[in-house]
């Protein structure tokens, strides 16, 4: 929303003498006491400092993770990008790579996105164009409530309640469409607690953010475009096709990217739902394994020696870079339309 800041006419009738030396001196009698000028300077620096702190925090995250990761990366005996397993048991002989972790992270997140995107589009359209006016707000609130449920509860529900319930679907896909690599036998002995299960849980978890962003942009569709479409005799669906979708497409994509970012970094639900596997990842949704986030969380209790810990921090750094890119792209795509 920075664009709005720029467009907004500066409402300050005066600012501190330091900031605008060109302002003519106020007429006698209205001159302020020096204390309030000092107050202005102090207040301005404090608020600016808070803003700068946010920028500094992001920079610090990158820098500190990098500082901690480099020694371990240098001591790494394996290729970081292509080695499939993460062996940090022997600090003198570290051999870790992110191939499998990257694949599991991507498969679970993209699968979640594939499931969540059409639903979110439907919900956003329903809330903006179909739901009765009086009910649209409470309905939107209900969808937002999905985001209020803690992720550990989604994890418990996912493995204990949802996994048995969707097992027949998984079995059917595996039996009938097993010739497609996505539904082939995985590296786990069972079909629950797989990337498939985890992806469904993640889809539920990212649904509210994708919906919220999409709904917000759809609701901003210019009135005149909608009225123009209606004047041409368009049906409700045609209004959506002619006005809402073309206007809101970028917001929808941006919202989906934000959802992808959430799915990539989701920790505890994935750790609980997706089982670890001793054999390497194939390319099936019925594989198991660790994502970046769940790998780090699974090892968190063993963070005592610097080199093995650094190995996990390097995985965290990759995750940070990934989510940074995805979120930055989302913002670029959305332009000024999306706030959030």
């Amino acid at each position: 929303m920075s664009e709005r800041i720029d467009q907004r006419a500066p409402s300050e009738t005066d600012s501190g003498p330091a900031s605008s030396p060109g302002v003519p001196a106020p007429p006698p009698g209205t001159r302020r006491r020096p204390s309030s000028r000092r107050g202005e300077t102090i207040f301005r620096s404090l608020t600016t400092g808070s803003g700068v702190l946010v920028v500094a925090a992001i920079a610090a995250i990158g820098v500190f993770l990098l500082i901690q990761a480099v020694p371990s990366l240098l001591a790494n005996q394996a290729d970081f990008l292509t080695f499939p397993s993460f062996n940090t048991g022997d600090p003198d002989n570290l051999a870790f790579g992110i191939r499998d972790i990257f694949l599991v992270t991507m498969f679970s997140s993209v699968f979640a996105l594939v499931l969540a995107m059409p639903i979110a589009l439907g919900v956003a359209l329903f809330l903006t164009n179909y739901a009765p006016r009086a009910l649209a707000r409470p309905f939107a609130y209900i969808v937002d409530l999905l985001a209020a449920v803690p992720s550990i509860i989604y994890g418990l529900w996912g493995i204990l309640v949802l996994a048995p319930a969707i097992l027949p679907i998984a079995e059917w896909l595996n039996a009938n469409l097993g010739w497609i690599f996505l539904f082939a036998d995985g590296n786990l002995p069972v079909l629950s607690g797989t990337i498939f299960t985890g992806g469904v849980v993640l889809a539920v978890m990212i649904l509210p953010i994708v919906t919220a962003v999409t709904r917000e942009v759809f609701a901003q569709t210019p009135r005149f475009q909608i009225e123009a479409a209606k004047a041409l005799g368009a049906t409700r669906w045609e209004v959506i096709k002619m006005a809402t979708l073309p206007y809101g497409r970028s917001g929808y994509i941006a919202g989906s990217m934000l959802g992808l970012g959430r799915a990539l970094g989701e920790t505890i639900a994935v750790l609980i739902v997706i089982r670890a596997s001793t054999s390497p990842m194939g390319f099936s949704l019925f594989d198991g394994g660790y994502t970046f986030a769940s790998l780090i969380a699974s090892a968190a209790s063993e963070f005592s020696q610097p080199l093995p810990t650094g190995a996990y921090i390097s995985a965290g750094l990759v995750l940070f870079v990934l989510t940074f890119i995805v979120n930055a792209l989302a913002r670029l795509i959305a332009g000024g339309k999306v706030n959030g």
């Binding site: 808070s50 920790t267 986030a293 959030g340």
Partner: peptide, 29 residues
């Protein structure tokens, strides 16, 4: 307050951008 009342120019834009990035930082990171 900085973003709404004082922020102009590149620093404000960077701050606003970084707030969005921070919103996307996973809790584990």
């Amino acid at each position: 307050i900085y973003l709404v009342e004082y922020g102009r120019g590149p620093l404000a834009r960077t701050t606003s951008f970084m707030v969005d990035i921070l919103a996307g930082v996973p809790s584990i990171v």
